[in-house]
Amino acid sequence: MRRDLSAVVEPSRKKDGNIRYDLFEDQNEPGRFVFVEDWASVEARTKHHEHGPHIAHFHSNGVNNVEMTEFAHKLKRVA
């Protein structure tokens, strides 16, 4: 799972509109991974998630190893 998720990081960072794309693993729950993403616009994020070839590849292959997906929290920077 770590390998499959890590494989989408660099291609995602190179996408137009990407500001930040980081993968973390919970220190208290090994195997629980969290992506932190920041995009210049909703359109850039949507294009990445719906049309990125590396994301499509993950959904065709690596997603089989995902036990559970939690809803994304969309945040707005305050300061």
Results as ranks from 00 to 15, higher is better:
M68C: 02
G31W: 03
H49Q: 14
N28E: 12
E70K: 15
I19A: 01
N61M: 10
N64K: 11
N61K: 13
F58R: 11
K74F: 03
R13K: 15
E37M: 02
M1V: 11
D26Y: 07
K47F: 11
E10M: 11
E70A: 09
S60A: 14
E29H: 13
K14D: 11
E29L: 15
S6T: 05
H73N: 07
D22V: 01
H49C: 13
K47M: 06
A44V: 02
S60Y: 15
A56I: 09
N28K: 11
S6I: 04
D22N: 05
F33Q: 00
V78Y: 15
D38M: 04
R45V: 07
D22C: 04
V36L: 07
E50K: 07
K14M: 05
K47C: 11
R32D: 01
H48T: 08
V34H: 01
F71K: 08
R3N: 10
A79T: 03
L75R: 10
N18P: 01
V63D: 09
A44K: 12
S41V: 00
G31A: 10
A40I: 04
H59G: 06
L23P: 05
D22R: 02
I55K: 06
R77P: 05
D4P: 09
K15N: 13
D16W: 09
E25Q: 03
E70M: 09
S12L: 15
S60K: 15
R13Y: 00
N64E: 07
L23N: 02
I19C: 06
W39A: 00
I55F: 07
H73G: 12
M68N: 05
N61Q: 05
A44Y: 14
D38I: 02
K47H: 07
F24M: 01
F71Q: 07
V42D: 11
H51T: 07
H48A: 13
R77F: 03
K14I: 01
A40K: 08
V36E: 12
H48G: 13
V66G: 00
D4V: 12
D4H: 12
H54L: 04
H59T: 03
L5I: 00
G17F: 08
E50N: 14
S60M: 11
F24G: 09
G17S: 05
I55E: 10
G52E: 10
N28G: 14
E50I: 00
G31L: 09
E37V: 02
T69C: 00
L75N: 00
R32M: 14
L75S: 14
R13S: 06
D16F: 14
N18A: 15
G62R: 08
V34Y: 07
Q27S: 04
N18H: 06
F71P: 07
H51I: 06
L75Y: 10
K76R: 10
P11L: 12
D38R: 06
K76P: 11
Y21S: 03
H57A: 15
S12Q: 00
R20F: 13
L75Q: 01
K74T: 06
D16Q: 04
V36R: 00
E50Q: 13
R45E: 01
R45Y: 14
I55N: 08
V36N: 01
E43H: 03
D26M: 00
E25A: 10
D16R: 11
R20H: 05
